[in-house]
Nucleic acid binder design. Structure first.
Lengths: 349, 349
DNA sequence: CTGTTAGCGCTTTCAC
DNA sequence: GTGAAAGCGCTAACAG
């Protein structure tokens, strides 16, 4: 027990396992056992140790545990940005699920910068986290495969593109949600239904487009590419798309925006044009984030179970970390149409 | 070098400092020096080591570093919830500032549960993070003082209540922002200006109320408690407050809501009543979060520099961690009135 | 059921 | 300038 070689323990130092062991008159191994609930400890000893632990408000040092046991109790979460509620709701679900496991979330926003994401992942995977949740990752399939080959355990939540089959993923039923939304508009009597989509190379766009087309086809409505506008998921993109739509000679009577911010933007541009929602034009969004409750009229939208997607991601990751077998490597959670006030009957014919 | 006593290194194990040292033909101490840029290393050696590091994509194991050096490179952030954009914007600022320091953020939402926050803090402070940023903490002043006495370093961002002078804090110029907003409404000719406040025991409410009263006093307008309604920062609270206001015999011609969601709710209830914004009633919010851009008409509001508050929190914390002296323990960032479309001339008299 | 012990990977004296 | 070595706090064999 030589003197400390270098400053360490912060001033108001917390108890270490050794101190607890001394106070309780047992070995540190025993303390470790009761803390981790592993191995056999007599009730008597356990109680004694627990009481000392409580008294000293002992909690294990995560760095030490991480180093010695190879698990840190930390899960890395990379995502493009924190702010849009789409992401923050997912993160909230993740955080809640991890809290229940007494694990924490290490947040790593990538700002859509591919290099940043790669660097972040590299650091996260090396000793700082046990695994990762990649929300809407920029990574290509091959990069993800490389990550896997390094032995990093991760789950992709809402894959941006189609990726390696062996990567566990969680996503929402995009195409069926889009189908429901479009079908609903058709039932209301709309025939000229525009779509404002996200970037064309994203899976979410692709699948929602598929649902949209499927519903139109079922109703025998010919899709018109002129009223399908590609945008960028942002309010402003929705405004521009909405404006463009109503400069057409034959404007739509309904708009299906592929996410809520786009729907909000579209609604703003429609209103700015002196048209009424839903009397003149109906609008449906996708996501059911808070945006849909902020606008007037309240937005009809397709609900994605975002928090649930986060929780599910955690649950898959835990199975991965425990090397448990997987019944389902790819989970798709159901979406649901939420009818509010932005949709109404189509034009009388 | 005995055999591994227990499974550790994950399958696709990353390089350790020892391996890098071997490959580079130097000691691990030298590798450590070049990684940390500490101590003297000849250019020649440094280059050699750096090249090996790059080649093997080596990054230090944070747990090991945390254990040995007493710093983890992780900062704990506790906050009530992630989701309201008020919080997520702060977090985004924090994350960005930490990224620049190659540090990470450990997120710990407390869901407003005081016990959860206490437990979380206890765990975070013990070896898992170097310090903390407490956003709108539930903790009482005395609890915070206890935390300090344990040697945990933290900064409070947007204190909920008045706390110990020695705790560094970052907040916004609440009272001056409220003063600006109210004054603007007065200049527009409004005399009957309602306030929808947050919970009365919160500093933000208190200070905004002070600004509101100050502006009224300056203009010689007597405040009327009947049109000051306490609410809860939520859209729905704003709806209720707005409704209540217009059941009054003498309703206001302008509403100053103490945050944006409240303003949105108030606006919704005003519109639901068949009144127009801003022709019949003007509405001002506080925050300038995305909500203000989602409503129609766009919301006039007081901008709080939320991301900047996050960054500033990090900057204070870093000073704390480096034991550097403080020129300012309490930073108050300026607010600014953003005039949009929800405000107009008061009633002609 | 409990204690002893060997490290986990890294940083930091302290010699050289 | 560089290396040797101790030790951070904890876990998991292993022995008893």
């Amino acid at each position: 027990m030589a003197a400390l070689p270098h400053k360490n323990g912060r001033s108001g130092q917390r108890a270490t396992i050794r101190e607890i062991a001394e106070f309780a008159g047992v070995s540190i191994a025993t303390v470790s056992r009761v803390v981790n609930g592993s191995g056999y400890v007599s009730d008597k000893t356990r109680m004694a140790v627990e009481s000392v632990i409580r008294e000293h408000r002992y909690t294990a040092n995560r760095s030490a545990r991480g180093l010695s046991a190879g698990r840190t109790g930390l899960v890395g979460v990379t995502l493009p940005r924190i702010h849009p509620s789409y992401f923050s709701v997912i993160v909230a679900g993740v955080a809640e699920a991890l809290y229940e496991l007494d694990m924490r979330i290490v947040l790593a926003p990538t700002l859509h910068e591919h290099d940043r994401e790669v660097g972040l992942l590299e650091r996260l995977m090396h000793g700082t986290t046990d695994g990762g949740l990649l929300v809407l990752p920029e990574e290509s399939g091959s990069e993800l495969r490389t990550l896997m080959s390094y032995g990093y355990r991760f789950v992709v939540v809402d894959p941006r593109m189609r990726i390696d089959e062996r990567v566990p993923t969680v996503s929402a039923a995009n195409s069926s949600g889009a189908d429901q939304a479009t079908r609903y508009l058709l039932e209301l009597g709309h025939r000229r239904i525009a779509a404002i989509t996200g970037p064309g190379d994203m899976m979410a766009t692709e699948e929602r487009l598929r649902g949209y087309h499927a519903a139109l086809a079922t109703a025998g409505v010919l899709p018109d590419p002129a009223i399908v506008i590609e945008s960028d998921w942002e309010v402003d993109g929705g405004r521009r798309a909405g404006a463009a739509l109503f400069e057409l000679a034959d404007p739509p009577t309904a708009i299906f925006a592929f996410n809520d911010p786009l729907a909000v933007g579209a609604m703003q541009s429609v209103v700015a044009r002196g048209l009424r929602v839903p009397e003149d034009v109906s609008i449906v969004g996708f996501d059911d984030t808070v945006e849909s409750e902020f606008v007037t009229p309240l937005l009809t939208t397709v609900r994605q179970p975002l928090a649930e997607m986060g929780r599910m991601g955690v649950s898959l990751l835990m199975r991965l970390l425990e090397n448990r077998s997987f019944e389902a490597l790819h989970v798709e959670l159901a979406t649901q149409l939420i009818v509010r006030a932005s949709t109404g009957a189509g034009p009388a014919r």
